[in-house]
Structure formats: C-alpha cells, structure tokens
Design a protein around this nucleic acid. Sequence first.
DNA 1: GGGAGAGGGCTTTTT
DNA 2: GCCCTCTCCC
Length: 664
Amino acid sequence: MKIDEIIESLNPEQKQAVLQTDGALLVLSGAGTGKTKVLTSRIAYILSQGLAFPSQILALTFTNKAAKEMKDRVAAIVDASNCEGLWLGTFHSVCLRLLRNHIDLCGRDKNFVIFDTDDQKRLLKNIMADDFKIDIKKTTPAFVADVISRYKDKGVCEVDVNMMQDSLHIADGNFVAIYTLYQERLLQMNAMDFGDLLLYPLKIFAGYPDILLQYQQKFKYVMVDEYQDTNTVQYAFLKLISAGRGNICCVGDDDQSIYSWRGAEIENILRFEHDFTNAKIIRLETNYRSTKPILECASELISNNRGRLGKRLFPCDENACVDGHLPVQVRGVFSGADEARSIRDDIESYGRKGFSTAKMAVLVRAGWQTRAFEETFIKSGIPYKIIGGTKFYERQEIKDVVAYLRLLVYPTDDLSFARIINLPKRGIGDKTIGEIHKHARMRGISMFAACENMLKDGSFSPKLSGVIEKFIKDFYRWRGVFNGSITESNGENIHHGKLVQSILHDSGYLDMWYNAKTPDAAGRVENIRELVGTITTEFESLSEFLEHISLIADSDEYSNGDEVSIMTLHASKGLEFDIVFLPGWETGIFPNERAIEEAGDSGLEEERRLAYVGITRGRKVVIIYYAGARMVFGQWQNNVPSMFIKELPKEYTEHSTFSTAFSV
DNA sequence: GGGAGAGGGCTTTTT
DNA sequence: GCCCTCTCCC
C-alpha cells in the first residue's frame, strides 16, 4: 500500500496523530484502537515525506515482538531497505547499540556479557552467602535482586546511599554493601545486568554533554510504544534524547499500565502534559475489536479507578455487529474443578457454533491457575497451548549449553564457569569451586584464569588436575576454532555450528543426557538439537547468537492453528481473541490479595487495570467465572466473588450459576 | 562429591 | 499440591 492510501484509511484522530510530526505528542490509545497502525504509519509518513533519514528516527518498544511487528509493518509501506537504518528496537537493544559506541566509558570491553535475572540471582547468592554470611533463607537472593533492580529502575546507583534509606535494614543492614560488591563483581566479570544497560547511557550523558548533544542532534524524531510502562530511567532517557529537537511522540494507555511491580511508573504518562512543553494529547477511543457490551463493561469497570487521564471506548459501528451483541456472561460455579469443566463445555459448544478454538483464550491471574485447565483439556482432548511459562531459553539444558558458549566467548564470565565446571559430573564439588573462587578473588582474575594458575602451582590433587586440565585445554582448542586460528585441513574456517557440536560432544555434555534415565532426558536432547539447528542456520557467528539471546526472552511461539491459548492476563496484553474466558474472579485471587497488601489502593487500581486488559481482549464473547470454593496450595478455600463483578454494568451482563458436579 | 529425602515457599515477569 | 533447594549420609 502506498502512503497516501494509508493516510486515507485512518480515522480523523489517527490521522491527526500521524500528521502531527512536530513537538511533543501523547497518543492516548485505548485497547483495540489501532495504536500500532498509528506508529507505523507515522514512521512511514516521516520517511516518505523526506522529513528525516531512517537513521534519524528512534522508535522504542518494550518487547522484541512489538519491535519486529513494527519493523515488518513499516517495511510493508516504504522501501524495505529504508528500514535498515532505523533505530527501532526495545529500550534494551537500543541502549546496547548506543553503549557499544562508548563502551570504554563503562569500564567494560566490547565483549561484555549481559546477565539475565537468573545470573543476577546466582551472583547475589554467592555474595550474600560467602562474603556476608547472610542466611539466604531469611533474605533470599531473589528478593535482594528485585530490590536492586527497582533501584536501578529509578536510577539509584550503589553510591546513592541517601536515597536508599528504606532498604538499609535489608540483609542485616548489609544491603548497600551487597549492592556495591555486586556492582564490583559485574565489572570484574566484564558484565552488565538489564538495569545497567539502561543506566549506563544516562551516566554517559551526564558525564559527557558532547555525546548527549550528538544524539540529540541525530534523532529528529523519537517515538515510544507502551509509554505507560516506562520506568524512571527510561523516562529520563527519553527526556534527554528528545530535548534537542523536541519531537517526541509517546503512545500508550494509562488504563493498561500493569507493570508497576517491575518499576513502571504510571505517573510518567499521567504527567506528560506537564513534562513536555506545549504537549498535545490525542485520544483514540474508537475500538475496532470488541462488541458494545464488552466495551461498556470495560469502560464502566475502569471508571472506578481514580488515577487516570480518562477516556471511554466506543464500538466502530454499533449496527454492524448487531448479531454479535452477546452480553458479557458472569458464571458462578461450585469449585475450581467445575470451573474448568464448565469452560471445557463452553469451548465445545462454541466450537459447534462455528467458533475456532484457535481464537479462544483462557486468561488467568497467576501461573498456578493454568494447571487445572491443562488437566481438564487433556482429558477431554481439547487442543491447547500454554503461553509463557518456562521459556525455551530458560530451560536448564539450554542455559547449560549457552553457558559453555558464553565461557568460550567471554572468558571472564565466572557464573558460566561455575555452572558448567562440574557439568557433566567431573568430580569437582563445592569445596573445589570455592577454592578456585577464592583464588580468583584474591588476585582479581577470572575463575578460568585462576584454574590455570592453580594447575601450575600444583594446588589440585592429581585426580583433580587431570580433569581440570582437560577442561582448560578443551576450551583453548574451542577458542582456537572460534577465533579462526584452528582451521579445516584446507585452511577454511570451521563453521560455528560444527564447533558447537564438538563442544557438546567433547565435553561429554550431550552424553550426560543420552545416558540419563529420567523421563525428561529425551525431550532435553531434542531441545538441544533444536538449539544447535538454530545456531547453525540462523546466525553468522556465536557472538551474534549470544548477543541475540541475551536480550530475548522467548523464541517465537508456534501454533498448530487450532489450540486454545492459556496464559496469564499479563501475557495477554496486546492480543485479541473471539472468545475470552476469565476464571477465578474471587476476592484474594483477583484482585490478588498480595498486590493489595503491598501497594494498597494503587495496587487495587492496578488489579482493576488488569481486569480491564482481560475484558478488552475479547472480540465477541467474554465469560467471567467465580467459584465458591477451590483448592489453593493444597488447602480448601471458601471464596467470595470479586468486587470487580459488582462493578460491571447490569444491562450488559448476564449472570448465572452452574453446577457440573455430576458431570465428568 | 553425589544422590536421596525433608522442608519451606509460593503473583504478575516486556529485557 | 508441587517444585525447588538444602542437607544429611553414604
């Protein structure tokens, strides 16, 4: 399609949002109102009008999925080669790209490794247990990791002690010291965590105004997706980088802000008008997704929230979908099992009415709720897929393989070293690893280098020396292949896919799973095969692969095309389904008790936004459930219906109670 | 150092 | 009720 046609296809508000290229603009975009269309059309418009070169446009998203979709959609409008130069990506990938240009200012070298949340927890566990002798049952590394991350979201570094008053008591008063040592270790390991990736650009901007100026001049247009999810650091980044030209367009929906527990500041979007001079706000309220009862329920429910900019959702054409105007259904059932059976029956009956199961979804508040549906669907032969859950790259065997590759490419990555030094079993236990670690810390070198020293010193027993020497020599050989100093007999470089295979083979890692007698071993071997296939065919080098997976949470979900989706409400944001099932609308479960305990009224409002997200996923039918009793953590619990049910307008809902106690 | 049982703990999880 | 992690004993 050409750009003129695209513009013509927009509604008046969308059109205004696309054509208003200059100045600060907030596009308040309700669910299903075409925000991605606005963003992509806007980029295409700027390019086609020659207002900027691709490299002068900065477009930021939160997920890789959103970035990819945007890129694809822009490429479909303008010449695809134009898209290559765009700075379009997630906050983290853009910051990484920026940091690569100035890595010398961060105390790292260009081969720095990015630690994910799992690495973060392992490192903190070491620090807390070994260096501070903290009872990690009382204060878990996960908790401390979370506190540190929240500070980083706010831009509070380990030196800003006066801003951490609330947390000084954590870990027997050692919090600041732990945070400080944690940062030191990251530096030693040539590593950064996700928070650092966003923080360091700000540090650079603060310390080197000329560099900031360079980027301010470079980026003529800045665009941001899901602005309601930005944290303080991202906000500061946007504010600085757009300050030169002043052209910033943020798209978001305050009613869909559901990530405050990860540092997102809904205040950022609420304050937009005051933050940016001469800011304009455009509201997109025409919904192209859902029928009127669904929109009325969603609008009415969310109107109970106080901290919001305020908007409603209107159906695009009330008359066009008359026969689709089923009311939102609210069903009371006896138990959790009945809830699952009732949803199963609904799926089957809507299936008979011609709805595709692929366009149905069960959206739950918490991950544990999915199990009941999984079990029931298996018994009834209903195809389903669970979205989210354990992701491919988070699987144990995948992380193991990645650790081998990481240690290959990043020799100072001690966490990867510690993960695989005894995997497969080489007879190297905690004691030996502890000694290696101690040696490394005392000399300020990596654990890998410490091993080499200790081999020379004769610090290991003869048996240990043998296995450790093999380990070290293996890595030297693999690194030789990696850097091209070891080649095929004809002098050609050995393909990196082949290298990965020899690593898995020579190390004995693959054999470990082949010989394992556990029932999951075959699946793990299969996963490893898939990984090797991906590395071999889709990446040019191991470095490229490692960089890719460090910033990606998930491999693409595939589908057979007829599965019901089961996922959390959080995971459903941005998706749509013909029929949406919303189970577990009971006090304590939803709104979630702990969310309210932790954040009071604002926690409740976030839960309500979550409900709003859930309802607005549905195109034709939304069915809400509450059970009178359910088994939670192995205990029977009597539950009362969620307060959100009372907040739905009576004229658009249909209430009923069901008992399927005698069905199977 | 490694395997088997007990104990605790448990929301959400874009990168 | 289940899974992960720690610890005890071989």
